[in-house]
Amino acid sequence: MLSRRALILAAGAALAAPAPVRADGPRRIVVLGGDLVEIVFALGAGDRVVGTDDTGRHPAAAAALPKVGYLRRFGPEGVLSLAPDLVLANPAAGPETALDQLRAAGLPVALAPGGEGWPSVPPKIAFVGDLLGLAPEAARLSARLDAEMARLATRIADVPDPPSVLFLISLGRGAPMASGGGTAADAMIALAGARNAVTGFDGFKPLSAEALTGLAPDALLLPDHAAEAVGGGQAALALVGLAGTPAGRAGRVVVMDALKLLGFGPRTPEAVRELAMALHADMADRL
């Protein structure tokens, strides 16, 4: 059905000169959402992507593609200028008016399923696979990732005493933003066999140095951009006043690629393993 719509579009939009649409699926895709970009590339269909939004930063080939602006505020005409035959969008993509304008231009817009955490990933992979005519590949990818997650889960279940981990999404100006319950970081910390040092609130809140010290985390987890901004993980530890906590005394700071850590997708098992190895150094050889 989709390819029929795409054919109609191709007939109607000759002046934008989209590439000829083949029967096996769309050939010129604009992908809105870094998680979907990773999935398309993991399915080996990266050569069909002609543009992404600003969150499409992995893999390197995706990062080099034309960018149509930020996920939540992309420019519709910028998308059309890439002469796509399909827009694959995360449900968070917007504004809604821009999506409507794309549809009005006769461009099919496929909204991937949403959801949070690891359980949302296999349905997304299946959706993209169906859309691109790569259903078998999608099934294989899902199965492989699922198996790896299951293997990690059984190993991590052996962790005797889960350490408490504080995740700071940014170091702010004097008030670092800490990640509470219900966040992607919270889910990843649990998957890696640890517990979130923050239990008092959901979402992100700026915390004072005193409040941070009171959390007494065993380890500090930082996204790479936040750590780089202050000159590395150890510098960050001192900066936010965690020197007196168990994490500070042991110098335990884990710095990870933010997209990989938080953007649930094909790289999530790898991220879980990386985080678990950093947190449980004693059992690294069994992960």
């Binding site: 579009l9 109607g12 939009a13 000759a14 002046l15 934008a16 519709p76 005409e77 059309l80 304008q101 009005a104 231009a105 006769g106 461009l107």
Partner: peptide, 22 residues
């Protein structure tokens, strides 16, 4: 193409761009 779109007689995509985006 722009003139045709403005007159409501353009290609659907050109019309969408000119009349509904620009």
């Amino acid at each position: 193409a722009v003139l045709a779109a403005l007159a409501g007689q353009g290609e659907p995509m050109a019309e969408a761009i000119v009349l509904h985006i620009r």
